[in-house]
Design a protein around this nucleic acid. Structure first.
Lengths: 110, 110
DNA sequence: GGGAGTGTATGGTTTTCATCGAACACTCGG
DNA sequence: CCGAGTGTTCGATGAAAACCATACACTCCC
């Protein structure tokens, strides 16, 4: 049958239930910042967890995604053997207006 | 004569030279968040470092202000024996539009 | 059903960061 | 010149967080 996954669905937190401090802490990490940026640059649900170019092992990567979910930044869905991601642009923007733009904006020269 | 201080002037960093990651990290701490908020609630140069209601000793407090200066969030000036503070609203807003508003805005109920 | 691919969970190590206590520097008022 | 008030610096401590290697769970395809 369709839609049947015998795998535990990932726990999500809606941005509305996220404290500012949690959101800031989630974004204040170079690896997660990269994840969010790469995620924003591609189509929704197009990137699996392993498809990101970050210098950490799978275990750490999995943890980072867990943090991003808890901060309401990322939504995940199981698609066959892989877990694909989506940046929760609209919802997160509604909760923290401008924050995402800020972090996605190309860094002005220092 | 006036304006003569035999004390080392605090090192400041202009918001324009601050990476996003540094700004986020500076705000992603409960004590510093309180400092910024209290600072925003009062007139510029009206608050000395010791006048904030945070549950840490002077040493830690001094360190937090150092982080806030490095993030371009706070400017300090020596005024007699005390060091008074100013939130760099305009400059920081120009560099990171909306970020201060976000953190100063009262937290919606969770 | 076996094996490859993908992601999570666990346990332990390392690093980072917030914190404190104590010592020091500076300013001001007696 | 001394003492109180204020803030920084230093060294050490403890907690939090990032990380890795391994082992495990699930899905798909042959």
């Amino acid at each position: 049958m369709a839609g049947t996954s015998h795998r535990a669905a990932p726990e999500h937190t809606h941005p509305d239930e996220v404290p500012v401090l949690t959101a800031l802490a989630a974004l204040a990490d170079p690896v997660r910042l990269t994840l969010v940026r790469e995620l924003a640059a591609d189509a929704e649900w197009s990137r699996s967890c392993g498809s990101f170019d970050v210098p950490v092992g799978k275990a750490a990567l999995s943890h980072h995604f867990s943090v991003l979910r808890a901060a309401g930044l990322v939504e995940q869905r199981d698609e066959g053997p892989r877990r694909v991601n989506r940046l929760r642009r609209a919802e997160f923007e509604a909760r923290f207006p401008g924050l995402l733009d800020l972090v996605l904006r190309p860094e002005p020269h220092l």
